[in-house]
Simulated assay, not measured.
Amino acid sequence: MTITARLAERGITLPNAPAPAANYVPFVLDGTTLYVSGQISQGPDGLIKGRLGDGMSVEDGAAAAQRCAISLLAQVNAACGGDLSRLKRVIKLTGFVNSTADFIDQPKVINGASDFLVAVLGDAGRHARSAVSAASLPLGVAVEIEGIFEISA
């Protein structure tokens, strides 16, 4: 089953790859290694804002992280010229969680992205990862995640 079909089973259609919000490129391809810039939490209704440990639940944070993963896949799709079958594996994610100083469940929040990628990609979705706290994130979003991927030439 294709990645697009597995996404469709979950009711997900990849959006257009989000445009950069500042002076950077959305991705850099070096051979078969694709580096995707940080994707902020946003859904069909706009930015997903909030701060974990201050009124936002871990479940809501995990849902925001899943939206970041969807944007990451949209960038991979753009980098692959619309041929998502070129994605071989997720190498590493770095997740940033807008959270209070005493919030300690950043890994549970970023699991929203990790679990989603494994569900959609199988073993190719298993990856190395960091999940860190941030005092704030751009535009007040709850989560930002960057990724490194392997693609076929």
Rank of each mutant, 00 (worst) to 15 (best):
M1T: 14
A5D: 09
R6P: 04
L14F: 02
A21F: 11
V25Q: 11
P26N: 09
V28W: 03
G31A: 08
G31S: 08
T33N: 13
L34C: 08
Q39N: 06
I40D: 09
P44M: 00
P44L: 00
G46C: 04
G46Y: 02
I48F: 03
R51L: 01
G53M: 01
D54S: 12
E59L: 12
E59I: 11
E59H: 08
G61C: 10
A62K: 06
A63Y: 01
A63I: 07
Q66K: 15
C68I: 05
I70T: 03
S71N: 15
L72T: 11
V76R: 04
C80Q: 09
F96N: 15
V97I: 15
V97E: 06
N98K: 10
P107L: 10
K108Q: 03
I110G: 02
N111G: 05
G112D: 06
F116S: 04
V118H: 10
V120R: 09
D123T: 14
A124C: 07
H127G: 05
R129L: 02
S133A: 15
A134T: 10
A134P: 00
A135V: 08
S136N: 10
G140Q: 00
A142K: 04
V143H: 12
E144G: 02
E146W: 00
E146I: 00
E150H: 11
I151R: 08
A153K: 14
